[in-house]
Simulated assay, not measured.
Amino acid sequence: MRRTGRVTMARWCPSPNFGPRPDNARISLLVVHNISLPPGKFGGDAIERFFCNQLDAAEHPYFQTIAGMRVSSHLLVRRDGLPVQFVSLLDRAWHAGRSCFRGEEECNDFSIGIELEGADDIPYTAAQYQTLVELSQQIIAAWPEITPDRITGHSDIAPGRKTDPGPAFDWSHYRKMLDSRHNEEGGG
C-alpha cells in the first residue's frame, strides 16, 4: 500500500480535489470524520459525487449550501462497511481544512482522512467499525508514525468549527477493536 497509496480492499473513485504533500511532510496522523448527504440521509451516491465535483445543487436545498466547495477525503466507509477511495494515501486530500494537532498546523499536509457515512448523533454500524479497524491497521503498518495516540477526530483538530465524528462514535469500542486486532496479529 505504501508504494502505490491505494488500498486494495477499497473501490477506486478518483477525486480531482487533492494535491502533493509538502516535500518534508511525514504521514503521521489519521483523522476520523463523518459525512452524509443530505445530512442524516444514508445511501445513494451523493457523497461520491460531492467529492468528485459532480453534485447537482438543484437536487436538494442543502446541496445549494455546499455548491462550489472543493473537498475530498482519502477514504469513505459506507454504512454497509464497503470502503471507497478518492485520493491516493500518498497525496494530500482536502479533508481537514484549517486544523491543528498538538501544535502542528495544516493537518492535511501530514494526515490521512477517513470519512464514515454517518452523522454526529446516529450510531455507526458494526460493519463500519470493522472496516475502519481493518483500514487503520493497514495504514498503521504502512506508516508506523501513526500510533494510537495519533488517531483523532475532525472535532479535535478543528474545535469550534467541526463536530465530527460526533458523540455517536464510540472511541473506546474502536480502540479496543484496534488493540485486539493488533495483539492477534502479533503486534503486542
Rank of each mutant, 00 (worst) to 15 (best):
D121R: 10
V32C: 03
P167V: 13
N183L: 14
D80K: 05
G81D: 09
R78T: 05
T131W: 03
S111H: 00
N24M: 10
G43V: 02
K41G: 09
I139V: 11
F42R: 07
E185K: 13
D156T: 12
A96C: 13
Y129N: 00
N17P: 00
A10T: 03
R98K: 15
F110A: 05
N53S: 10
D164G: 10
I122D: 04
G103S: 10
M177Q: 08
L116E: 00
L55Y: 01
H74R: 04
T8N: 10
D120Y: 04
D121L: 08
P39H: 02
S15A: 04
G68V: 07
S36I: 06
I140F: 12
L178E: 06
P61T: 03
S136H: 08
F63V: 08
K162T: 07
R3I: 13
L132N: 04
P144W: 06
E117S: 03
P22G: 01
H74S: 05
G103H: 08
Y124G: 01
P14N: 09
R26I: 10
G81R: 06
G153P: 02
P123S: 02
F51A: 06
A10E: 13
H182W: 14
C100D: 11
H33L: 06
E105N: 09
C107F: 01
P16W: 00
R21Q: 06
G19V: 07
A126G: 07
S136F: 09
H154I: 11
T147L: 08
H60C: 07
H95V: 08
Q138C: 10
P123N: 01
A67Y: 10
H154Q: 13
R2D: 12
R98D: 15
L29W: 00
P165C: 02
P61R: 01
P38R: 08
M69C: 08
R26K: 10
G160F: 01
F50N: 04
E59T: 11
P61V: 01
E134N: 11
A46K: 15
R70Q: 12
R49C: 14
Q130N: 03
S180F: 13
T163A: 06
A126F: 12
E48M: 14
W171K: 05
G44H: 06
D179W: 14
Q64T: 15
M1A: 13
F110S: 06
G188R: 13
E117Q: 02
K176G: 11
Q137C: 12
L30Q: 02
K176S: 13
I157E: 00
E59F: 12
P61G: 01
G44S: 09
F169N: 00
G118I: 04
V32W: 06
G103E: 02
S88N: 14
E134F: 09
R161Q: 15
D91N: 15
N53Y: 13
D109L: 09
M177C: 11
H154S: 15
E106A: 15
Q54W: 10
V133W: 02
A93I: 02
P144Q: 00
T4Y: 12
D170P: 06
A127G: 08
N108P: 05
A67M: 07
F101C: 03
A67T: 05
H154V: 14
G188H: 13
L89F: 13
Q128D: 04
